[in-house]
């Protein structure tokens, strides 16, 4: 049977590959992703299931699912031109993805699907740093975390649990890593940007509280406080926290190995390993 062996929480800031190219391997971003890359390699993953929020690139306002999965043998990444990111072809596992989707629908989560798709920086940037050879197949699971109405934190956590049950009922002996991609507090292109920048962190106190709850495995409090109002107050992409919450649902309520905050960006790098 397939087994979940680790959880990772990752940022996906599109300009990070450019910064690392410019500033070299000793810069903070390179070190933080480098540490996660080592941790990920040590899990010997056969597959990554990544909870992610698309930035109106894979989907758009003409058809915007709350939950969706990419189901194909491979997909192109990225589709939104982040600087210094090559064009990748990422392998996937369509029969396993279809199995997860069917199980999720059976459990009451109406998950849309896309085929012949591409993904944006929110999937690509973490992979660019963590699996640059693209040797590990990836199944993307999209959660609508930007445009209200947002799905509830409770539902995303429960969705993660349903995805875990689906993974653990797959007959092949695969080691599966779950990732959640995104920020806790960030405004991109909206009125709450910092002066002179294209983004800002509207609610750093919330980001700190999220990090504390993650470190202490206070998942119930995290879910209770992650209301739509709080996530929108944290910025126009504050709902990306839902990807971390779904990841936590999939891995169960555990203490992390570490959470490394990057407060100027309102996000963190998290690792949960047990196997």
């Amino acid at each position: 049977m397939a087994q979940i062996v680790a959880g990772f929480g990752v940022p996906h800031t599109p300009v990070f590959p450019f910064f690392v190219k410019r500033d070299g391997p000793d810069c903070e971003i390179a070190k933080l992703f480098g540490a996660q890359k080592e941790q990920l390699a040590a899990t010997r993953p056969d597959l990554i299931v990544m909870f992610d929020t698309d930035h109106l690139n894979t989907f758009f306002l003409d058809a915007l699912p709350i939950f969706a999965m990419g189901i194909d043998k491979s997909f192109k990444a990225p589709n939104d031109e982040p600087r210094e990111v090559p064009n990748y072809i990422v392998k996937s596992v369509p029969d396993f993805a279809a199995h997860i989707r069917a199980a999720a629908i059976g459990a009451g989560y109406d998950v849309a699907m896309t085929q012949n798709f591409s993904v944006d920086h929110s999937v690509t940037v973490p992979l660019h740093f963590l699996t640059p050879e693209m040797q590990v197949p990836v199944i993307p699971f999209f959660i609508s975390g930007h445009l209200p109405p947002l799905p509830s934190a409770q539902r995303c956590y429960a969705l993660g649990r349903a995805v875990a049950r689906a993974i653990e009922s797959w007959p092949a002996a695969l080691r599966v890593v779950i990732m959640g991609s995104g920020s806790f507090s960030l405004e991109v292109g909206g009125p709450r940007m910092a002066p002179g920048r294209s983004d800002g962190v509207p609610d750093p106190d919330w980001a700190l509280r999220v990090i504390k709850y993650l470190e202490q495995a206070q998942i119930e409090r995290l879910i209770a406080e992650s209301t739509e109002h709080q996530m929108l107050k944290a910025g126009n992409v504050g709902g990306e926290l839902l990807n971390w919450i779904a990841m936590l649902g999939a891995i169960g309520n555990r203490k992390p190995d570490y959470i490394a905050p990057q407060m100027q960006n309102g996000h963190a790098y998290g690792v949960w390993r047990w196997n």
Partner: peptide, 15 residues
Amino acid sequence: SYNERMRAVKVDEIG
């Protein structure tokens, strides 16, 4: 200029 013009918009707590 984008930053200045967008930041001039008055918004409530949730933007």
